[in-house]
């Protein structure tokens, strides 16, 4: 019995497939709502807000906008994956949540509020968003909230892949939510709202174990030469595309110039140019775009936050089961 348990939690061969996704952004619902080319028209805007979902649920009457977005993105992902809610209920589904900003609205409101509201305080916890998702769908499996800024999306993909390949779950939901509207003054003060606009988003991927796929590879480094170091590691093997997710337009320009010198023939997708800045959601949307493109070789998802770069190398997308 001991040996069986031990085997069950140790790495198995194989990788991870994308079964489906849900996406709500300031551009609309679904991947098809995103602009197909760099969106020049958005340059005049500072922020692309996402509409608050109308979930018509008495249980969620106190839930914040970010919680509603999280629940709606998961529901959309289940629909896209042809899964009924009861199929993700229980202990064999993991929920890995990533965000750089979604807690800010509730926290800032509580810091600045004159009138105090006991019901509001629980929603200041970043875990409020995944909590509402687990309650809504009855999920009791592995559970994690990553808040490492824009790199949290990459980390969430890695952690979900780890949970799947070590058989700690059979299915993993990777959820990202980024909201900015309620704290626009903070982002203005921090000079975030210069250049490319902030894009509000809620993105959810449904991942499953796939024995015939290669393993998802994760790496991250901190420091001045971290991007160069990551690029040096990924020279081996065929790469179809690099999806670059940076937290500012300037950082994206600098990094893309460097990547073009290293991989001159590489297809490089700059998420900030195409969509706007959506922080931890960007790698999740990038993976949706990559699956849709159906490229046969690996894709590299790269993200940056302050002095840190993080990447996942996602293999064999032509074999993915994305719809």
């Amino acid at each position: 019995m001991r040996q069986e348990a031990y085997r069950a939690c140790n790495p198995q061969a194989g990788g991870v497939a994308v079964r489906g996704w849900g996406l709500l952004t300031g551009w609309g619902a679904g991947l098809q709502s995103l602009p197909t080319l760099p969106a020049g028209a958005m340059q005049a805007q500072r922020l692309l807000p996402v509409a608050t979902p109308d979930l018509a649920s008495e249980r969620l009457r106190r839930a914040t906008r970010e919680c509603l977005l999280g629940v709606a993105a998961v529901q959309a992902a289940l629909d896209h994956s042809c899964l009924a809610p009861h199929e993700v209920a229980g202990a064999r589904t993991a929920l890995v949540y990533a965000s750089a900003s979604s807690y800010a609205a509730a926290n800032w409101t509580f810091v600045t509020s004159e009138t105090e509201n006991a019901l509001h305080f629980p929603y200041t916890a970043p875990s409020a968003v995944p909590a509402e998702v687990t309650i809504q769908f009855g999920i009791t499996g592995p559970y994690l909230t990553l808040l490492s800024g824009a790199n949290a999306g990459i980390e969430a993909l890695w952690q979900a892949a780890t949970l799947l390949t070590t058989a700690q779950c059979d299915r993993a939901l990777v959820l990202g939510v980024e909201t900015f509207q309620e704290c626009a003054e903070l982002y203005t003060a921090g000079r975030w709202l210069l250049g490319t606009p902030l894009l509000e988003a809620a993105a959810c991927l449904v991942l499953e174990r796939h024995p015939s796929l290669a393993a998802v590879r994760y790496h991250a480094e901190w420091g001045a030469r971290s991007l160069a170091s990551l690029v040096a590691r990924e020279r081996e093997g065929a790469l179809a595309s690099v999806y670059l997710c940076t937290p500012t337009a300037h950082a994206g320009q600098v990094a893309s110039q460097y990547l073009q010198t290293q991989w001159p023939a590489m297809s490089l997708v700059l998420l900030h140019e195409r969509l706007g800045i959506c922080l931890a959601c960007a790698p999740l949307i990038a993976l949706m775009l990559a699956v849709t493109a159906g490229q046969p070789d690996d894709v590299l998802l790269l993200s940056q936050w302050w002095d840190a770069w993080a990447m996942v190398r996602w293999p064999g997308l032509s074999a993915q089961t994305g719809h």
Binding site: Y143, L144, A220, A308, A310
Partner: peptide, 15 residues
Amino acid sequence: ARWLDATGPVLTIST
């Protein structure tokens, strides 16, 4: 991470 001159992954979690 800055204080330690870290070179590897730098993660923040909240459960």
